[in-house]
Computed example of a mutant assay.
Amino acid sequence: MTLNQLRKINKHIRIKGITNLAFRKYGKIVTGYDFTEMIKYIEEKTPVPEEGVVCVPSAEALESTEVFKKLTSKYFGWMPIQAGYCNGMNSKLNYLGNHKSNKIIVAITDMIIFIGKLQDILEDQYDIKKVEAYFIPEGVAVEIFSTTLHSLPCKMEIGGFRCGVISIKGTEGLINIEDIEKYMLVSKNTWILAHEEYTELNSRFKVGLMGENLQVYIAKNEK
């Protein structure tokens, strides 16, 4: 599905391109790196679940690629990093998360992502009216700043979405916190505010997104 087709179906959402100047406060397009090897592995070796989303923060095969080595030294300044993937059938906002470090998302398929500013969280609440939707085209990598709230990608095709994720090592790793549902911190270096609709399925996430849980439709009869 093309972006223009998607916009016609989703008139309730203003979908911008990442070349829009407004994106600069959230992140930037990553250039000068060849992600072909990483993209090929994710396309050929990682499944898209029939329902939901599967996220693997660290995959040895991806961390053995040449681009990973270059990113470690030149892009992240020898900070320890990890490379994984996230594939799924998601089409809703559901929640917004952030990390205390920047991350790179490599779009293996066309996708839509909801993003906002960390500074707009007030007393553990975020007004969904402030969120923005951006289109990331297949094959493009973007850096997401640590001050940016971001959702899981939303699919643009019936077959779901695939993306690679490069982040500081340990991000999204398991943590041992009792009564974790009381906090925005849900895993290592990962803070999340969820919509109440989503927490009906994932009660450990803190409710904080106020307003309608936005959905990206890929067919007119979905509404």
Rank of each mutant, 00 (worst) to 15 (best):
L3S: 10
R7G: 01
R7V: 00
R7C: 03
K8T: 02
I13N: 07
R14V: 13
I15M: 10
K16V: 03
F23P: 04
R24A: 11
K25D: 13
Y26L: 04
Y26C: 06
K28Q: 10
F35E: 06
E37I: 08
M38E: 15
I39C: 02
Y41C: 04
Y41W: 13
I42P: 02
I42L: 06
E44F: 00
E44M: 09
P47F: 09
G52F: 08
V53M: 11
V53H: 06
V56H: 07
S58L: 13
A59Y: 14
L62P: 02
S64F: 05
T65M: 00
F68Y: 15
K69S: 12
K69G: 00
L71H: 00
L71N: 03
T72Q: 15
S73M: 12
Y75M: 11
F76V: 02
G77V: 00
M79Q: 15
I81H: 04
Q82A: 08
Q82D: 06
G84V: 04
Y85E: 04
C86F: 01
C86W: 04
N87E: 05
S91R: 04
S91L: 01
K92P: 00
K92Y: 12
L93V: 05
N94R: 14
G97Q: 14
N98C: 14
I105Y: 13
V106S: 01
V106I: 15
I108R: 06
D110L: 05
M111C: 12
M111E: 10
F114W: 05
I115C: 12
I115P: 02
Q119S: 15
D120F: 14
L122P: 00
E123N: 11
D124K: 10
Q125I: 11
I128W: 00
E132Q: 11
E132K: 09
Y134S: 01
I136S: 02
P137Y: 09
P137F: 12
G139M: 10
G139K: 08
V140L: 13
V142D: 05
E143A: 08
I144G: 07
F145A: 05
S146M: 07
L149V: 04
H150K: 11
H150N: 10
S151Q: 11
L152M: 14
P153C: 12
K155Y: 07
R162E: 02
V165D: 09
S167T: 08
S167I: 01
I168M: 13
K169H: 05
T171R: 06
E172F: 04
G173C: 10
I177L: 13
I177Q: 11
E178L: 12
E181Y: 14
E181A: 13
V186R: 09
V186G: 03
N189L: 03
N189H: 08
N189P: 06
T190K: 15
I192H: 05
L193E: 05
L193W: 06
L193D: 05
L193N: 07
E197G: 10
Y198N: 11
N202I: 10
R204A: 02
K206D: 04
G208I: 05
M210C: 04
G211P: 06
G211M: 05
N213E: 00
L214G: 01
V216K: 04
E222A: 07
E222S: 06
